[in-house]
Design a protein around this nucleic acid. Sequence first.
DNA 1: GGCGGCGTTAGACTTTGTCTAATCATCATT
DNA 2: AATGATGATTAGACAAAGTCTAACGCCGCC
Lengths: 135, 135
Amino acid sequence: MTREEILELFDKRGVKLTPQRLEVAAILLEKPQHLSADQIIDRLRDTGSKVSKATVYNTLNLFGEKGIAREIKVDPVRRIYDSTRGHHYHFYNVDTGELEDIPVGAVELGRQPDLPEGTEPLGVDIIIRIKNRRN
Amino acid sequence: MTREEILELFDKRGVKLTPQRLEVAAILLEKPQHLSADQIIDRLRDTGSKVSKATVYNTLNLFGEKGIAREIKVDPVRRIYDSTRGHHYHFYNVDTGELEDIPVGAVELGRQPDLPEGTEPLGVDIIIRIKNRRN
DNA sequence: GGCGGCGTTAGACTTTGTCTAATCATCATT
DNA sequence: AATGATGATTAGACAAAGTCTAACGCCGCC
Ligand SMILES: [Mn+2]
Ligand SMILES: [Mn+2]
Ligand SMILES: [Zn+2]
Ligand SMILES: [Zn+2]
């Protein structure tokens, strides 16, 4: 994602532009990927950036709320942020910890169950757990 | 689940019986439910039990590995253990934090995507996020 | 009775993320 | 230009969940 596209996305989602938010977005939204807050901080440090830990967490929470990135719940010890915003599912390799995207079209989700009384749907998360085949 | 059934399950899954493990199992496996480690510790304390925090965590990890309970990844701040062992999916109410079981039959999972090279499947987790309808 | 192997335990410790209070930046008003 | 309001950023304290360590208990076996 280019700088221009990021600015456009911020604007469309009502996120005020700041240098720090742009730095975080430039790393996370660079390409389709799944990163933890800590990985993002490491990469910021690698590029010499001084954005604080608090701001990185604030920013990632904001990105999650505003739909600029997606928070994936797959590892109980850390939150993973997904730069791919469109609807999709995931493979989760328990051996490597890697996440891989599954396009919506690749899964056929037929019948959906009735929702509990007085609730409305927010979304469906599908995680297919896999492991390396030991030959 | 009765005490007898628990002993049988321990035996079948190769889990050595100890008083502490039985206490934890008696609480978690009593009925279909979703509990955090902290909730289990609270209930143990309520019944006057002195099982240590370390043993509760050890035991829940063991139960997870041995298939005596299922670990649900839905809330990044705490692990949830599910007493229902059979294959099923979940509603997750983001307003209340409640989990509700979805029987396998209620979801039609048609086409499954091709797995990444050199991997084999472990299982499919489906979480349907819902929220309370504000009228 | 002594030994070996687990399981349990208290409490220290680690990791992830949040909070607080101070500072900074931006913008509008005078 | 100064003032003030508002919101973002920051360092570091803090909180919460879970793991680790080292000591101790228990039990079966020699
Ligand atoms: Mn790091
Ligand atoms: Mn509690
Ligand atoms: Zn993804
Ligand atoms: Zn369940």
